[in-house]
Simulated scan of single mutants.
Amino acid sequence: MTPTTRIPRVLSILIPSLLLCYGVLRLIDGLDGDHGPGLAWNLGHTFFLAAFLLLGVFLVELRRLVPPATAPMRVAAGTATIAGVFGAACFVWVILGDLFPGLAESAPLPEPLKLASPLVFQLGLLTLVTMLAAARPRRLPVWSPPLVFLTFGLIMVNLDLLPLAAICLLAGLAPLARNRTPLTRDNTPDIQARPTVRL
């Protein structure tokens, strides 16, 4: 396992797991009919914050796995990465405001960014996942993009569906953890890393 592929393999499992923890704690926090400050709220938002900090790293790592096929593809992958990281940063801003009300009052996220950042983040991540599913050699199965899309859809329908959404995201990204194709820095298969078959 090379450093180029180790990080996305770990994050493909860790990030959905953190989101699952947040979703479960959010349900526990809402058992009294209200969501607000308390142990479950603070712990859940800490998991949520960690997930989006790692998602920024994950997006950059996914970009490195996209084969540099053509100039338009490279531009599209770079644009998706920038958009996704920007969206993740806006999420981090909002989550910090939830954890620290004084920060939310003194430096709230501008309303246009609050409305646009979820869509920008989703488009960035979904674009990179789709590119990896369409790449040759294939880095993700064809059903990974629909599962990632379903993840976002479930969250938009109801935040109480976060645990189910996290499981869908795990199912969509987990193939990265099983992918054993070593890559070199230029994103091409490392032939020397494969065992030689002698006849």
Rank of each mutant, 00 (worst) to 15 (best):
V148E: 03
R198E: 14
N179F: 02
P118C: 07
L109W: 14
F47A: 14
Y22H: 13
P146S: 07
A107K: 11
A80N: 09
R194M: 14
A76F: 09
D32C: 02
D98F: 09
D190G: 05
V75T: 15
V142P: 08
W143V: 08
Y22N: 07
R180E: 11
L169M: 12
R136Q: 11
L161F: 13
L159I: 10
A89Y: 04
T196R: 09
R180K: 09
G38I: 05
P72Y: 03
V85P: 02
T46F: 00
V197M: 11
L119T: 15
L14P: 00
A133F: 04
S106W: 08
D186P: 10
L154T: 05
P137D: 02
G172S: 04
L53S: 14
A83E: 10
A177K: 05
T127K: 07
L123K: 02
L119V: 15
A171S: 12
W41C: 00
F86C: 10
G38H: 03
L99I: 07
A88H: 06
T184E: 12
P146W: 05
C168W: 00
G153R: 01
I7P: 06
P141D: 08
G36Q: 01
L43A: 08
L183F: 06
L59W: 04
E111T: 13
V92Y: 06
D32G: 11
V148M: 08
P189H: 03
P68F: 07
A88V: 10
P110F: 09
P72V: 11
L18Q: 01
L140D: 00
A88Q: 07
C90I: 08
L109Y: 12
N179M: 06
G33Q: 09
L173T: 08
P101S: 06
S17P: 07
H45K: 03
N158S: 15
F152R: 01
M1Y: 06
E111S: 12
K114G: 15
D29S: 11
L31E: 14
L19K: 00
L49D: 09
R185S: 15
T2G: 15
L113K: 06
M73R: 09
D29E: 15
A77I: 10
I82P: 03
L39W: 04
